[in-house]
Design a protein around this nucleic acid. Structure first.
Length: 351
DNA sequence: AACTCGGGGGT
DNA sequence: ACCCCAGAGTT
């Protein structure tokens, strides 16, 4: 094991000492001992999502669904509505499924056995480790993006940390170095990754582990961790129909699988070109459209929608999940990403 | 092993 | 304009 030149003990002890004085004050860290339900919900919300974005969602979530049984009793549409705007909506659907499973199988509680936790929908190796170590005090690692970055620098791991070779190397290092206070240790690595060992210009002058860091010693802290660049997003044209009848707009519920699953949208057709998309929309509604009134470029991580919204003149409601909504009604349902913006626009010009 | 799945803030 | 974040599930 690598030892630092100054300070007592190993780097794990130095990290924990730093954490005791610098830990972030976060809503889900308030209860002592930690509430497993709070740990679970916060960990799901934090998947691929920054803490600042999670805070308001976590607080309003706990007001709306204060415990597992309240969540298990809710309808999926209510859960999705509460999640609206956070992204990765399968997380919300999986939370709901898991809560119902806990109500049925585990007496309304979050289980504390690793196999049981891992079997729940939406909980993978990271989240299971986080729950076991933080909520139940077990000696388990929790390897997320922060931990990968910190270890890649500390031990100068040159492999792509998102591929299995690099991951396995770091998993082995975490298992070798994990101390008894695993819950605090895991959170300490995340706080270090969030405040000090940040992706771009790491603040090594403030880092309690600078003396222990191989990348810092070799001047490679800015080059690590290595990751292969992602491919550019696919661009699509999207034609949306604004069809209003007796003060209500026609909306469509997206399928239960795939992107923005089970959320509502304006009738929409995708295409390579603007004309193709618009033609698809007219075909879908068996009607005619007027010049577009609204446009918006919505950027997803792996997809870009160039959206235009056209007023619809007569037509036929397609088969499937279509319904008319007044503004009061569609404020209560989960709207699919950019369609919430379109809904706000429609409300402004029409009502 | 590669792909899918959102949205937002930092630089 | 990128980058990438307290990742998991599917193919």
């Amino acid at each position: 094991m690598m030892k630092g030149k100054k300070g007592e003990g190993n780097w794990q002890e130095r990290l924990l000492a730093w954490f005791d004085g610098h830990k972030r004050d976060l809503p889900w860290r308030e209860d002592k001992p930690r509430n497993p339900y709070h740990v679970w919900i916060s960990e799901i919300m934090l998947q691929q999502t920054r803490t600042e974005a999670v805070k308001p969602y976590f607080n309003s979530w706990m007001e709306r669904f204060p415990n597992i049984s309240a969540l298990a009793r809710a309808k999926e549409s209510e859960v999705l509505h509460q999640w609206q705007g956070l992204g990765y909506y399968s997380r919300a659907r999986n939370i709901h499924k898991a809560a119902m499973e806990m109500a049925e199988t585990y007496g309304g509680r979050l289980p504390d056995r690793k196999e049981d936790i891992l079997s729940l929908p939406g909980i993978g190796s990271y989240t299971a480790g986080a729950i076991l170590s933080m909520a139940y005090g077990k000696r388990e690692g929790a390897i997320d993006g922060n931990v990968l970055r910190v270890y890649a620098r500390l031990y100068q791991v040159e492999e792509d940390i998102l591929k299995s070779r690099g991951r396995k190397k770091i998993e082995a290092l975490v298992n070798e170095t994990l101390p008894d206070r695993a819950g605090d240790f895991n959170e300490a690595l995340m706080d270090l990754g969030a405040d000090i060992c940040i992706p771009k210009n790491p603040r090594c002058s403030l880092c309690p582990l600078a003396e222990d860091c191989a990348a810092f010693r070799n001047g490679k802290e800015k080059e690590l961790p290595f990751r292969t660049p992602k491919k550019p997003p696919k661009e699509e044209q999207a034609a949306c129909g604004i069809w209003i009848k007796e003060g209500r707009v026609l909306l469509h519920k997206r399928p239960a699988r795939g992107m923005l699953a089970s959320m509502w949208e304006f009738p929409m057709a995708l295409g390579e070109t603007e004309e193709e998309a618009r033609k698809g929309l007219e075909q879908l509604l068996a009607g005619k459209t007027e010049d577009f009134l609204w446009q918006y470029k919505h950027v997803f991580t792996h997809r870009i929608w160039h959206m235009k919204a056209y007023p619809v003149r007569e037509g036929a409601v397609p088969e499937g999940e279509y319904r008319w909504f007044s503004p009061e009604e569609y404020r209560e349902i989960p709207l699919a990403g950019p369609h919430a913006r379109l809904a706000a626009f429609v409300e402004k010009i029409v009502y």
